[in-house]
Amino acid sequence: MGWEEKVRRVVPYIPGEQPKQKGIIKLNTNECPYPPSPLVKRKAAEFRTDELRLYPDPDASLLVKSLADYYGVKEDQIFVGVGSDDVLAMSFLTFFNSDRPVLFPDITYSFYDVWAELFQIPYRCPALDEDFRLKKEDYLSENGGIVIPNPNAPTGLYEELDTIEEIVASNPDSVVIIDEAYVDFGGRSALELVDKYENLLVVQTFSKSRAMAGIRIGFAAGSSKLICYLKDVKFSFNSYTMNAPSIAWGAASILDDGYFKETVGKIINTRERVKKELSALGFVFPDSSSNFIFASHKSIPASELFEALKQEGIYVRHFNKPRIDNYLRITIGTDEQMDELLTFLKRYI
């Protein structure tokens, strides 16, 4: 073994498949089916590549100011990173530093336990109830921190803000992270509570509702003290994580609020239509408030449907895990893409 005995070994996170062939319908990674704002396209066309010889602004000031103005918080209450995964990883490293277990649900974003293992953070995963709902009382016991995705992934269920606030208020000695990757598709954001609770950190991403998964932008909002600690860890790790195009194009996306709301509205309308169609085909699913539907068929196994769809060039996500191995997570695409999915399902079922 020798040197291998000293290697830090973890089981890595496995993202959704990224097929290389053309002409497929990709509904497996919750990407936005529409392009980013035209303002982003304009900024990209105007970007001077000779500026890439310079380091980017380590504070990402333009993007931070745009976010602070948009969400009505101070600039020292915003932290940005290379996608929300980067922001969350830094948050785990910064705030979860005790012998008490960090709490997050048993059915949730599967990167949480990877970070906990990587950073050697003790954790416990309270089980969601039979309807995949959070049991509030599970988060009122002693802990080393809490992470709750809202809406949850992969279930798509949103917990009311009153429930979230009670958990935050009941844990003044722990940092509570609310991961809101999908909140723009349904529900109230906990951002409105960050001035009320010093221990609350709200994390969002540009990868879903802002159609910018390929440029990697995420951010957190919280008390200035939380953000200061987060920056200290980040700048101890890497000073220049946000590249210059990300900063400029992210700020442009924030400016185009009309396009943002129009895009989100289209996805929500398509989601609600597809819910009715899937239900008529014999599917059951939690009432999604996200940009995907977590569906199980009453008689056909999810694994069979997954393979049949893949053969047809339609990619969805299947998790071979306890309690959810008979469900498919289906990203909401364009109306045309969803019609092709539904046409195949009608023929197959």
Rank of each mutant, 00 (worst) to 15 (best):
L305R: 13
D50F: 13
L54V: 03
S61Y: 10
I25C: 14
A45F: 10
F206D: 05
V176H: 04
T108D: 00
P33D: 05
A213H: 15
F111D: 00
G218C: 03
M338I: 03
T163F: 05
F185M: 01
S141K: 14
F206V: 04
G258P: 07
S189C: 04
C32Y: 05
I14R: 11
Y158A: 00
D138C: 09
R317P: 03
N143M: 04
P101C: 10
V80G: 11
E117Y: 02
I332Q: 07
K26H: 11
K26Y: 14
M338H: 10
E17M: 12
E340F: 07
F219V: 02
Y34Q: 10
I121D: 01
P149K: 00
K43Q: 10
R8F: 06
V102S: 00
C125F: 00
A220F: 06
S239C: 13
P151Y: 03
E312Q: 15
P33G: 10
R271P: 14
P154N: 12
A221K: 03
E312P: 12
S174K: 11
F95V: 00
G258S: 13
M242D: 04
F104W: 02
N238V: 09
K6P: 05
F285T: 04
G214I: 02
T270K: 14
L345A: 06
S66L: 07
T205S: 14
Y348L: 01
G72C: 06
I254E: 08
T29D: 15
P56N: 10
N97W: 01
Q120L: 01
L88P: 06
Y182C: 02
L27D: 04
S207R: 04
L193P: 06
V40E: 03
A220V: 05
V80Q: 05
Y55C: 12
S37I: 03
I177Q: 00
Q77D: 02
E4T: 15
R216Y: 10
F292T: 02
L161K: 08
P15E: 04
S296R: 13
K225H: 07
V40F: 10
A153Q: 02
E46R: 13
W3M: 09
A153M: 03
V203D: 00
A60W: 06
F283R: 07
L27K: 06
K74C: 10
D138H: 15
A116P: 05
V176K: 03
M90D: 03
D129K: 11
I330G: 09
D287T: 13
I146S: 02
F260G: 13
I247S: 09
L230I: 01
K321D: 03
F237N: 13
E336H: 06
T343H: 15
T155Q: 10
P172N: 11
I332F: 11
F185W: 06
E262H: 15
V7P: 12
V202I: 01
